[in-house]
């Protein structure tokens, strides 16, 4: 098994599709994780940030306190949980963060914007594989107030900036009518300080690229027309986002982190259990969800590919 397979957070636990709030409480609370792809993915993130900064980083002024809180939280967590890779030293208000993996040192004074070259969230995000989003818990709702987003699955940070949580999620089919999203929002507003919840969200992508922003959809979106039964194993990837919601204790805002993992189908089908669960989940996917996830265009080719793999490996459907 490759490193990717070993680390891959396989999302399916049941044999049929069910959309629910399948969150688990993390003990200890963590906001980020370091995988074996750390160096290449962080470099990719930084390239994207350098080339398309406006697309990848946005923040409203109100988010500044929470941004500083996130910066310190992430650096403290990295140095505490991965001390072999990261160190954080403090002298009064002055901090020095050492990233041993990249051989870099960041020195800054806490809450002194003149001591750093980019905004605090932007700096924090340049040392982790995750996309980092700050949701402000305001008196009139939960709003997306800042984000560093390099690896989105077909959405635009600029479009959702300043939007209310509920409104961001209205295009997900089937979730407005049963007030599902209101339940999720209420769940988020009741997350306790210093606690983190994790859920896995999956989709399928026709590229091995992590960066599939809506802004370049006209380039990569058309690849979905190219899937055939013969090339699905190479072309199609199961994309899983490990999403974490962390209640920032001081500002009371929410840090939403997204760590994205990709697994080509050729690797997925080498695990019998995964193959069967993936097959049954895609098979039972309601049409509107398949449309939303962009699978409908090539679902037939995908199913044929998976059925052939099941037959080859003598697994009952």
């Amino acid at each position: 098994m490759s490193n990717s397979s070993k680390e891959f957070p396989f999302p399916f636990t049941k044999d049929s599709y069910a959309y629910s709030n399948n969150s688990i409480l993390l003990d200890p609370a963590r906001s980020v994780a370091v995988s074996s792809h750390y160096i290449e993915e962080v470099k990719l993130k930084r390239n994207l940030l350098n080339q398309n900064h406006e697309r990848c980083f946005r923040a409203l002024p109100l988010s500044l306190e929470a941004q500083w809180e996130v910066l310190l939280l992430v650096f403290k967590e990295l140095s505490t949980c991965e001390p072999q890779y990261f160190t954080l030293e403090q002298r009064g208000n002055a901090y020095q963060f050492t990233n041993h993996l990249l051989r870099e040192v960041e020195s800054f004074s806490f809450k002194d914007s003149s001591s750093i070259e980019v905004e605090p969230l932007d700096l924090a995000g340049r040392h982790v594989q995750e996309d980092l989003i700050i949701m402000g818990d305001r008196h009139d709702g939960l709003f997306l107030e800042a984000g560093q987003l390099c690896f989105p699955s077909n959405w635009s940070l600029t479009f959702v900036l300043g939007m209310e949580f509920k409104a961001i999620h209205t295009p997900v089919p089937g979730i407005t009518d049963n007030r599902f999203i209101e339940k999720v929002e209420r769940f988020i507003t009741r997350i306790r300080p210093n606690s983190a919840w994790e859920r896995k969200n999956w989709s399928v992508t026709i590229t091995n690229k992590l960066d599939t922003p809506l802004e370049t959809y006209s380039d990569w979106g058309k690849l979905r027309y190219n899937v055939t039964e013969a090339n699905a194993g190479e072309l199609v990837n199961l994309r899983v986002e490990v999403q974490r919601l962390y209640r920032l204790p001081v500002t009371n805002d929410i840090l939403f982190s997204i760590h994205t993992y990709l697994l080509p189908l050729n690797e997925l089908i080498s695990n019998d259990e995964w193959l069967k669960k993936f097959y049954t989940n895609v098979k039972t996917l309601p049409k509107e969800i398949a449309d939303y996830k962009g699978i409908s265009l090539y679902k037939r080719e995908l199913m044929t590919f998976l059925e052939r793999a099941l037959t080859q490996r003598k697994i009952e459907r």
Binding site: S156, F159, Y225
Partner: peptide, 20 residues
């Protein structure tokens, strides 16, 4: 998909069947 922050609807590119 409408943003009250931008007071605008999100617009997607139109693909033709032949694209790609």
């Amino acid at each position: 998909h409408y943003s009250t922050y931008h007071r605008a609807s999100l617009a997607y590119p139109v693909f033709k069947e032949t694209d790609g």
